[in-house]
């Protein structure tokens, strides 16, 4: 069976807006992460990271927003298990807490 097509790759960017315009930006259908992370800057603006396609970023620029692309550090191995370390349930995981007073 053919693999279904993948979604358009998305980029990460930092959006900088005047604080009064924050509600306007939150109204746009943008991916802000699980919840928006808004950081107040000293110059009265706020910044928030967003995830968007290249064309969505272009639309934001055209609407007058300051958009700075985040250079994502390539090559980071976030590390996902390949096989099954628990052997289908024949091995139990061990917690990371230190067991005390036994």
């Amino acid at each position: 069976m053919a693999e279904p097509p993948l979604p358009t790759p998305r980029l990460e960017a930092t959006l900088r807006v005047d604080e009064e315009r924050l509600p306007d930006i939150l109204r746009r259908s943008i991916d802000f992460g699980c919840r928006p992370v808004v950081t107040k800057q000293d110059d009265g603006t706020v910044t928030l990271p967003i995830i968007a396609t290249a064309s969505q970023l272009e639309e934001l620029r055209e609407a007058g927003y300051s958009v700075q692309l985040i250079e994502t550090p390539g090559g980071i191995d976030y590390g996902v298990g390949q096989g099954d370390r628990f052997d289908g349930g024949r091995t139990a995981p061990r917690g990371f807490g230190e067991k005390t007073g036994r």
């Binding site: 590390g79 298990g81 099954d84 370390r85 628990f86 052997d87 349930g89 024949r90």
Partner: peptide, 13 residues
């Protein structure tokens, strides 16, 4: 990180 198979097998374990 655990893959989805490992999440299930960890619980079973």
């Amino acid at each position: 990180y655990l893959n989805v198979v490992e999440v299930e097998s960890a619980l079973a374990g």
